[in-house]
Design a protein around this nucleic acid. Structure first.
Length: 257
DNA sequence: ATGGCTCCATACTGGAGA
């Protein structure tokens, strides 16, 4: 079972790229972030035609998350991260597919830090930590994936000294990622590639992709029940070089089922 | 410190992204 995550930076602006990538990469399950579309404007029919059934949670202008599957309709378990009834951002959707619970998340960027946006990021991360603990206690196979907007270590960004005060790399942010690992979650990309430089995002400016000035912020966290089933992982870097592409590349893992 | 690029919005500029 091949599971991918892809921050598309607008599903409608990106539809041709997404359809070409689905055809070439053949993932069974896909988590999308930054749909930037209201609920009614999600391209459900075009994705069905490509063989994928979807559940999604749209929002005007920003955010928005979706889970696609070609192995049966995702059984949605929730579409809001628990812990704050006032939070109107569409940043989390969760569904069960093939006996595995998949959480698709778009964690807040948090810049500038400090400030209200960073406070929101910290509060959202703490809610994630709480929900992650609940999921672990249930004991079943769970995969939390998406755009975490967290650079976990110095090895995960080009020129880390430039990012020390950034919301993606500040100690408070990295501490939450460490806390997730201490809870019992495994960073799948680092499990497969412990010492390699792996990036999943390159900004649109200054030929960042051409210079490989990137960062690793799209992650897969595996619950203990999934770790022994992990077979492979990768980043579809070539997609980042396509015309009218996202600033993120798709990331994927393969698990035995 | 800024800006470079791309997206969205009852748009012809400004906010957000990372």
């Amino acid at each position: 079972m091949k599971i991918a995550t892809y921050n598309v930076n607008s599903i409608n602006a990106r539809l041709p790229v997404v359809l070409r990538w689905l055809e070439e990469s053949q993932p069974d399950v896909v988590c999308l972030q930054e749909l930037k579309a209201i609920q009614e404007n999600f391209p459900e029919a075009a994705l069905l035609e490509a063989g994928y059934e979807s559940v999604w949670h749209g929002q005007k202008s920003w955010n928005g998350v979706a889970i696609l599957s070609r192995i049966g309709l995702p059984k949605e378990t929730c579409r809001v991260l628990p812990g704050d009834p006032e939070d109107a951002h569409s940043r989390y959707i969760e569904a069960e597919i093939n006996g595995i619970l998949i959480g698709c998340l778009y964690l807040p960027n948090g810049n500038p830090a400090p400030g209200p946006k960073f406070d929101y990021k910290l509060s959202w991360m703490n809610r994630l930590l709480g929900h992650a603990q609940t999921l672990l206690r249930q004991g079943g196979p769970v995969i939390l994936t998406g755009d975490f907007n967290i650079i976990p270590t110095e090895a995960d960004v080009y020129r880390p000294e430039r990012w020390v005060n950034d919301a993606l790399f500040r100690p408070e942010t990295r501490a939450i990622f460490s806390a997730l690992e201490e809870q019992g979650w495994t960073d799948a990309i680092r499990q497969i590639y412990p010492g390699q430089t792996i990036y999943t995002y390159w900004d649109y400016f200054r030929n960042a992709f051409g210079r490989d000035a990137g960062m690793r912020i799209d992650h897969f966290l595996l619950s203990p029940a999934v770790v022994p089933k992990l077979r492979a992982a990768g980043v579809d870097r070539d997609v980042r070089g396509w015309v009218k592409t996202s600033d993120h590349a798709p990331v994927w893992i393969e698990v035995e089922v």
